[in-house]
Structures are given as structure tokens and as C-alpha cells.
Design a protein around this nucleic acid. Sequence first.
DNA 1: CGCCACTTTGAATTAGCTCAAATTCCGTGG
DNA 2: CCACGGAATTTGAGCTAATTCAAAGTGGCG
Lengths: 263, 263
Amino acid sequence: MLSTATPHAAAPFNRAAVAASWVPKSDAAANQRASQATSDTLKLLGDRLSPQRRVVHAGDVIYQAGERFGNLYILNSGFFKIVTVSPDGREQVVGLKFRGDWLGFDGIANNEYACDAVAMDIGEVWIVRYDTLLAACAAQPALLTVLHEAMSREIARDRDSLMSVCTLPADARVADFLRYWAESLAKRGMRTDQITLRMTRAEIGNYLGMTLETVSRALSKLARDNLIRFVEKGRRDIHIPEVNALSEFIQGCLAPAASPVLQ
Amino acid sequence: MLSTATPHAAAPFNRAAVAASWVPKSDAAANQRASQATSDTLKLLGDRLSPQRRVVHAGDVIYQAGERFGNLYILNSGFFKIVTVSPDGREQVVGLKFRGDWLGFDGIANNEYACDAVAMDIGEVWIVRYDTLLAACAAQPALLTVLHEAMSREIARDRDSLMSVCTLPADARVADFLRYWAESLAKRGMRTDQITLRMTRAEIGNYLGMTLETVSRALSKLARDNLIRFVEKGRRDIHIPEVNALSEFIQGCLAPAASPVLQ
DNA sequence: CGCCACTTTGAATTAGCTCAAATTCCGTGG
DNA sequence: CCACGGAATTTGAGCTAATTCAAAGTGGCG
């Protein structure tokens, strides 16, 4: 029971083997609770901060790396990608943002934003001056709680991202990406059976650490296996009959030789 | 000047080509400022919170995934790794912590920790009850500033991690890992010419998304190129004559065919 | 001193990348 | 309304970086 090497990366610890073939199931009740929580939080923020609102269109840049920090942004609707550029010019999509997510936390530490926030669709962001927010938090502890929870969620999510990139083979990474997107929608009360990817294959590949061709091949494979279906013309709309099936597919990628019956 | 494909992953954007061969240099003055800032912050926290202190030894677990959240921890000395386990048993080192870093932010959102914090050496952590901290922050805005800066830094750092894994080939990833470690020490006023890795090759590989053999080969190559030197017996102590040379090496991995003179 | 975990190195294999070409989609202008 | 052109996507074929498997070497610690 020593480190059973995973397909993609070594597993240097001994605990991995424990949770054999348990597959996490999407929990409809939990999603509904989360959806309510998102709405409640947005209502709280809207009421207490009465923030400035801004309608954005695909491609709009809310803030850019290097720009002086001052505002945090709350995404009321639409989809954003977060992009960083290394000093030597490498670009990387490092995060995706959905309704209820905050943008701009990265700017607090050095008083300037560390990345770009780019809208991927029509949407609305709420603009909150950071110092105004802090003042409001002093009077309303509930606001501070909400703020910290948002930062905490972002930290936890970033780690999941790293885990996916480090431990999953390409096909599974794409499946996990779709699962994540669908779950994100489900947690916000949006329909999850049919999703519209607002990213090109190249962007998805960049986010997942693979080439656009590999993304395309992975999607084709998922379609062949009936885990997804391309809707109509255009390959941006994807029908996912059963989100849980994606999780099982990921499992299958990890333990290709394990027979579930024997042993 | 359209997307010049990077060796490891596609570059889906056009901005990448701009910053040609600019290599970020380690800035001694900035490091000294950062070191002072870390000390100042720790002093502030120590004075205002007079936190409970705990000495830890290598292998000690400060908190575990699933455990009820209640405390944040401030690392006064020593080194920690942050490990997450997916539901299906994949383990992943998702972060490294140094003096002045906080641990436990991931627990705020769901009121339970999402990962394990494991000491890699002897050290001391300061224990702060989260609600106590919030109360103190209400009276001392400086504390809140410090808290948010720490969370912000963690978010930014996690993104750098993802960028490294997604855009760099294996050798460069290892070089970047060493550079990151050395820089982290430098920013805290510790000597950086000779560092002691507290991780096995397997752990480093896990953190960087590659196998232990690949880590070993990459380190051997770096030693062959005189970018690092193994100190004495034992391959955990590494001498880095010139941290900036590591950055240049990373550059070289990215643009193997680019001649710096021509064009 | 000897065991055991860690590391190194080699050889063969393969997942994913690069390069290339064909196809589809969508916006634009005739 | 339809033709056209550029961008995105798909798919194939070969190649390469990194993995897997294997074996030998090394060091720390009881």
C-alpha cells in the first residue's frame, strides 16, 4: 500500500489509497442552499453598500495588472476570466469568476492589481471602493464575514485548480473543467444541463495547461463517450446529460486497470 | 507577431511577445524592506494579540482537512507545507509557508479546514482564535490591514504557482521552484546562498506536477550547468551562487532558438 | 554495522506537443 | 440574400519531453 503512482504525477504519501472508488455526487439540495446564499449575500451587499454598477460586455477589462488598487468588484451577472502575465511575457488564465464572486483581492497586498480581469460576456459588476468597504465593515460585521468568506473561497478554489493541473491527465482535466463550470452554475441556481463555454479552445487549454488541440481531442472523446453533446451548430454550447458521469470519467482516467468487481 | 507558441502550452493571446528577453532581477533593497515589513508585522501581531505560541517539529500537523475551523495560525519560524486531498484520494502539495505567513484561511468559508498544514522543520506558530482576531481588528484597523494583505498575498502566490505549472517545462519549473524558495528566504532576511530543502524529491515533484525522477534529473542538470551545487554529503542542502542565473535559465528554456544578438 | 528510505541514472514507452491540412462558423460587405 | 475571408475547430501524423519501470548507489539513524 505504498505510494501507488497516479498516472500523471507521483503520489508521495500513503493516504491516497484509502478512499478507493468513492465518487463525489452533485448534491441538488446543497446547490440550492448555495444558490440562496449567493442571492442573500448579493442582496446584503447591494443594500448596505449601494455600490456603483457597471454593465460590461465581452472583452471589457475591469482592471489591469499594474493598475493602482482602489476598488473591489462583485460580479452580479456574467462571467470573467482572470489573466496574469509573467515578467517574461507568459500569459496564463488563472481563474474564472461567476455570479457572486469578488474580483480584485490580488490588489490589496501591494496596492496594485496583479492581474487582468476580463469580461467574457455581457454582465454587471458592482464597484466598491476598498476603504469605503472597510468603513462599512466596521459598522456591519456581517459584511466583513462575507468579505472573508469570499477571499477564503478563492484561496480554496485556486488550490483545487492546482490539484487538477498537477494530478490529472489531459482528458480528465477537461472533464474536470466542465464539471467545475457546471457545478459553479448549479451553485448559483442556473441551469447546468446546457452550458455555453465563453472561452476558445486555446483559452481553455491555457487555463488547463495543455494545447488547444489536446482540448479539442478531449472534448471529442467526451462526446464520443456520450458524456457531453455539442448543441446545434457551433461547438461552444455543450449539453451535459449527467454531471456525475464526468466525475466517474475522471475516476476512470485515474485507475484504468482497476477492475471494480474483483478484489 | 501572432501567438508564438511557448514550449509547454499554447499562448492564446498576442501580448506575450512584447516583453522580449527581460529578466526580473532580485532586488536586494526591496528584499530588505520586505524583511523589515515581515518583522514589523510579526511584532504588531505579537504585541496586539499576544497569541498562544506552539513549538512544532517536522511532521507535526497543525490542522487537518475536515477539522472544524476556529483558529488562524501565524508562522513565526520554520517551514510548512499545505496539502490537500481530493475526494478520490489524490494528494497534492498546494502551498509552502515561510516566516510571517498565515495558515488556515481556507477554513473560513465553510467553517472547516480544506487542507492539512504540516510542519517541515522545527518552528513556532502563533495561534489566534478567528473570532478573537476579528474583535481585535475592530479596535485596531492596522490588524485588519495586515490580515487582508496576508490573504491577498496568498491569492497572488497561488496564481503564480498555477502559472509556473501551466507554462514552464519541467526543468524550468524546478529552477523556478528553487528561485521561489530562495526569494522567499531573501524577503525574510535569511541567507539565500545556501538553502536546505525540507522536501523529498517526491514531494517537490508532487508540488510541481512531475515525477520524482524528473525532479532528480532536473536538479542534476542544474548542477551540471553550475546553477546550483550540492553541499557536502546529502542532497538536501543546495548552494545557489547566483539566484538571478536561475531566472535566466528559465528564460532559456522558453526561447531555446532565440538568438539575443540578431534581430 | 546494517537497514531502509531516498536518490540517481538508464532504457523503453507513451501522453501530449508540434506541424499541417481540411472543415466549419460567423461577421461583413457586395 | 449570398459570397467571401478570417478565426476557430477538428483531425491526422510524427516527434519529443516526460513518464514508467528497473537497478544501483548513497546516507541517515537506530
